[in-house]
Design a protein around this nucleic acid. Structure first.
Lengths: 228, 228
DNA sequence: GTGCGCAAAATTGTATACAATCTTGAAAAC
DNA sequence: GTTTTCAAGATTGTATACAATTTTGCGCAC
């Protein structure tokens, strides 16, 4: 099994492919990412793989253990709380700014994203739907024209994807995009205050849909605690 | 000129050395960081240097231009505003949390930092004083026990150091640590609300001490615009 | 059969070698 | 004298080779 594509695979493109695979839950938290293994799959040398893995570790999607290798990150419960705490500091205020700067074109783009998310969900591609759902938040930050904050939010959403993979409790409705629709309404009205409040509620709903009790739950982390 | 130390220089330690040098203004924004040049100075191969430079670029302290090399970042005026916008979203609330969790030991540590900052300032080592001043903010975030937010603040403060190097107007008093002393008072009282307000004011003062008018100022960026 | 020890295999960390791209500067054309 | 061309030098991007560390598993003692 070698060489999956004809275009030359650069360190950056490899980073993006791995990032997307993790974000779409095609690779599970805790999975070891061996340098030789990935190098053979994509037909590149370990040098290139290492650069990509290092980038992923900076985004906190991968944990590098010295002389041990790279593993898809497994955020702890404390880290999960911290990620949503950070999001609740950044995203509501950013939604406010975005609402005030929103153009008709922005709204159309966001609406298309919601539609695509809806399609993915109904075609059973939950990973894809989750990815698109996250991208919705990132685009809001970009509309707010705050690239610095947008970069933070982008990282936090990627990490949220790992958190959802680990702690999401099935009983809660899967990412019903009601919240996103409501946000769209506030954006259409250019109502900054309402957008801010809706985003705040949305994040509370999200964290509520997780099981963050310290019950030594998550099967993989227990197994991991014994072998590391 | 080779080999400055006897301990083996690892990619991580090289990252820290370069980060500190940039933070203390020993390397100016815009400086080219050639891989061979750094490698010879520290007695390591380009492989190690590249890993360190990549880490620095993730922290936004260095800009990597493909096939051109690594340069100490030169934040634009827009980016400078964004950095302080992000700080004003994160730091006041974090100071609030920190005040409520503050132990006597924490307060003693912070006080020692302020003293060291004071000493550095009076011994004329402005770069060192600036570094310690930034570290004060980082430690507050760590006391708040929010590692995720602390990591963001750490990056924002490093970038603030570059911003200060580019846009600080000499006429404003140099980082008078009055604001830090006032914060210490609020911390000593465990007064979260006051700490939050003081931090907010402190950040406003900081940005006010900068010259962020779009006058095509900063000599180096003009020269750079023509040569890139 | 169980547990320990140690050597071989495997994996990562770093250095070196080669390829691709960019920069420089001098010669030639005008 | 100025501009253009293009080749040589310099620098980065990637691959390969070697060193250091960790993991594995077989053999041996008990």
């Amino acid at each position: 099994m070698t060489q999956l594509q004809t275009m030359p695979v650069t360190a950056d493109s490899l980073f993006e492919q791995l990032e997307l695979a993790i974000h779409e839950h095609r690779i599970a938290p805790g999975t070891k990412l061996g340098e030789d293994e990935i190098g053979e799959i994509y037909g590149v040398s370990r040098t290139t793989v290492r650069a990509a893995l290092q980038s992923l570790s900076h985004e906190r999607l991968v944990e590098l253990k010295r002389n041990k290798g790279a593993f898809v990150a497994q955020p702890s419960i404390k880290e999960a709380r911290e990620v949503f705490e950070a999001r609740s500091l950044l995203e509501p205020r950013t939604a406010h700014s975005a609402a005030l700067r929103m153009t008709d074109e922005h709204i159309e783009n966001l609406q298309r994203h919601i539609d695509a998310e809806h399609d993915a969900l109904h075609s059973g591609d939950n990973g894809r739907a989750l990815y698109l759902s996250g991208k919705f938040h990132i685009e809001i930050a970009q509309i707010a024209d705050q690239e610095t904050i947008a970069a933070f939010i982008k990282q936090l959403i990627s990490r949220s994807s790992l958190i959802i993979a680990l702690y999401w409790q099935r009983r809660s409705a899967l990412c019903e995009s009601n919240a996103h629709h409501a946000l769209m309404s506030a954006f259409a009205d250019r109502d900054g205050d309402r957008a801010q409040e809706l985003m705040k509620s949305h994040l509370v709903d999200l964290i509520t849909s997780l099981d963050l009790r310290n019950i030594e739950s998550s099967p993989s982390s227990l197994r991991d605690a014994l072998t590391r």
